[in-house]
Nucleic acid binder design. Sequence first.
DNA 1: AACTTGAGTATACGCATGTTTACTAGCCGC
DNA 2: GCGGCTAGTAAACATGCGTATACTCAAGTT
Lengths: 186, 186
Amino acid sequence: MNPQVTEARPRDREATRERILQAARTLFGEQGYEQVTVRMIAAAAEANIALVGRYFGSKAGLFAAVLQGEPTFGDLFTGRPEELPRRLAEYAAQRMQHPPESPILRTLERSAYHPEVRVAARERLITAVLSPLEAMLSGPDAHARARMAVSVVLGIGAMRRRVGPEEPTPADVDRLTAVFEACLAG
Amino acid sequence: MNPQVTEARPRDREATRERILQAARTLFGEQGYEQVTVRMIAAAAEANIALVGRYFGSKAGLFAAVLQGEPTFGDLFTGRPEELPRRLAEYAAQRMQHPPESPILRTLERSAYHPEVRVAARERLITAVLSPLEAMLSGPDAHARARMAVSVVLGIGAMRRRVGPEEPTPADVDRLTAVFEACLAG
DNA sequence: AACTTGAGTATACGCATGTTTACTAGCCGC
DNA sequence: GCGGCTAGTAAACATGCGTATACTCAAGTT
């Protein structure tokens, strides 16, 4: 009814850029790269489509910018190594029921088949997850052990997405703890 | 040079249908649902594009037909239950390096986000993998234990696809055996 | 107040997709 | 031998995508 509901937004390049970035972060995290269109992002950011191209060059460039802005999981890989399996188990148990809060992990959980996205996601998974974990491990085969533990985390998320969420029980957490101990055992 | 290299193929509805189905099986398995176009399938089957629609209704219908024709993994879930962790470990170890031979598993490994495909893939994963495994397990929490073991298998494949293949070592197989024992422990 | 800059806009381009339509021609029963 | 069923074909359709273009107009400076 009101012909001018939306008041005019002040012109602010940086703020608009940030709105686009934030909208992309949310949508990519919720739906994955391929499923999200530039038009969807622009609509969510209440910005014009062309601005996506203007500020980020391309959809892939926008995705890369989203990845770059994401925090790492430092807290997961700090603390005493003996507690690591339990922490990973609690984290993975959450993944049985809910997607990660972090959009980047949500996106990495999914398969992104566009070549540019693949390499960016791969790079991110290695530097932000695999390498920190590997650095925590002592003993032989640190690389293989880290890889296996992260595989389990990925697998839990894959199962949730494919079959459906499941509320983790205390027994699940115990089992997962044993699983990660088996993964990480030197 | 030769203007008529390809000799005329006899007109055979069933054979053509089967060629399309086989081409779809291979391509879907290799590249996943979204990445494969009906034109690619038709070209691989040396059939006309329109026949895909004619014989299977739609791309999703073709995919469903592929799923239906796939064999189950009966051999993986038979035999003595005590040997199950080792068998699963050997299977998962193969998955570290190579995609599954079975196109259906290759497809299920990937995320298929088209709604029709999702439900078909989910159904298949439950009836052909989760339920048979669950039926093999005695003791409490059979459902959760089966789910966790399959999650690990999925995760191994997800890691290979994301980061790259890795040749499994004997130590990896041992570790995986311990992991599946932890998953399946009643 | 006039000018310049650039943020924001509307629109269309080129392309690839799944799907459908009208048509052609080979095979089988009579 | 021929007529009708139908497998197979060629071409287009409608749509949605990422991207690019030409333009408008608000704001800061002189």
